[in-house]
Design a protein around this nucleic acid. Structure first.
Length: 219
DNA sequence: ACATTAAGTGATT
DNA sequence: AATCACTTAATGT
């Protein structure tokens, strides 16, 4: 977490990501009331149990949102990219409760922090804000259904391949710098199992592997 | 050269 | 598919 970039950059980022979605007066209010924050790879933006004082809107980079059980084991729920918000956070903010999820940076990211008090005010004041929030809710819901489907109906090897492809799309590269352990954590599996499945994928010509690196041969 | 961390393997449940 | 108990390989200091 470093200091905010200059305000002209802030203005440009807001316009780039939200300009076409939100009305002008609201954009101005966002600009005035929000705080721009930079995060680095693997920084945690939200921890489970956090009291949320602001909702994040991702302007650049990608964030993964995961659940955590009492043993500290994770399960990846969905991703958030530029111009999107996290539905769970919205709820936490409006209900003034604590976070049920963890949000981690998959790459360096720039995030707009909006004070939670603004939520209610803008909900009443701006139609475009209501639509934005509802739309975001809907998208998150659909994504979560997709991962539920994956967990319930797909075999782990299919899930793994889907995971690799999702990551590649999101990060915009066919060369993933993940350890087998990290992948196992995201999918809530064990390292040994992931290693073996990856080996199969390599033999079948879908990927190539090196230490800390996985190359997808195609999307 | 040694310690640490990532990845591979066979056996067992 | 998970876990155990090692082994081997790659990296950092």
């Amino acid at each position: 977490m470093t200091n905010s970039p200059s305000s002209s950059i802030k203005k440009k980022l807001i316009l780039d990501q939200l300009g076409f979605l939100l009305e002008e007066a609201l954009l101005e209010e966002i600009y005035l009331n929000s705080q721009l924050k930079e995060f680095k790879l693997d920084d945690e933006i939200i921890h489970p149990g956090d009291d949320l004082l602001a909702i994040p809107i991702v302007l650049e980079g990608s964030i993964k949102v995961s659940r955590e059980n009492s043993a500290g084991e994770e399960l990846l729920l969905y991703y958030i990219e530029g111009g999107d918000t996290c539905a769970m956070t919205l709820q936490c903010c409006t209900q003034k409760s604590t976070s049920e999820i963890r949000a981690t940076c998959m790459e360096d990211a720039i995030v707009l922090m909006i004070p939670r008090d603004m939520m209610g005010i803008w909900m009443n004041k701006y139609k475009s804000w209501r639509e934005f929030i509802l739309q975001s809710y809907h998208t998150r819901m659909m994504e979560m259904m997709e991962t539920i489907d994956a967990i319930a109906f797909m075999r782990l090897d299919e899930r793994l391949l889907k995971y690799l492809k999702d990551q590649a799309k999101l990060l915009g590269t066919l060369e993933l710098q993940h350890t087998h352990q990290q992948i196992a954590d995201d999918l809530h599996s064990s390292r040994v199992v992931i290693s073996r499945l990856l080996k199969q994928l390599e033999v079948s010509g879908t990927i190539r592997m090196m230490r800390n690196r996985i190359f997808l041969n195609e999307l």
